[in-house]
């Protein structure tokens, strides 16, 4: 399949993520949107990796072919860690203020 399709899909996903983060106030939705952006990047990385695999093989450096895919795993691990921490924060937030609306948390201003 043409690489363009992957890029467009990834851009769409990423933009949905960004817009979601910007406009939604529910912390859980924002969180999901962040995940969406990460996965958009993951998708792109995998797609590029596949595209460059032949080229890399031609240069006789097989490591290059799998670098991006390994990177994706890193991101997934980090995302998993982030989910655990982030969800914990959201739970704590709900316990304390009984809401998951992020606009309610503007104490940074003071």
């Amino acid at each position: 399949m043409d690489i363009k399709a992957y890029i467009i899909l990834s851009m769409v996903l990423f933009t949905i993520g960004v817009v979601g983060v910007l406009v939604r106030r529910n912390a859980i939705i924002i969180f999901m949107c962040v995940e969406l952006m990460l996965n958009a990047v993951n998708l792109l990385l995998v797609a590029f990796s596949k595209m460059h695999a032949l080229e890399a093989a031609a240069q006789a450096s097989p490591n290059l072919a799998s670098d991006a895919q390994i990177f994706v795993f890193f991101i997934m691990v980090v995302a998993a860690a982030e989910v655990s921490v982030g969800l914990a924060i959201i739970v704590m937030m709900y316990r304390n203020v009984h809401t998951v609306d992020v606009n309610f948390l503007n104490r940074l201003k003071n």
């Binding site: 992020v102 503007n106 201003k109």
Partner: peptide, 14 residues
């Protein structure tokens, strides 16, 4: 600019 709204900061970032 320092509104304290995380959303605003993110918007600026974007």
């Amino acid at each position: 600019l320092q509104s304290g709204q995380v959303g605003a900061y993110v918007l600026l970032m974007v």
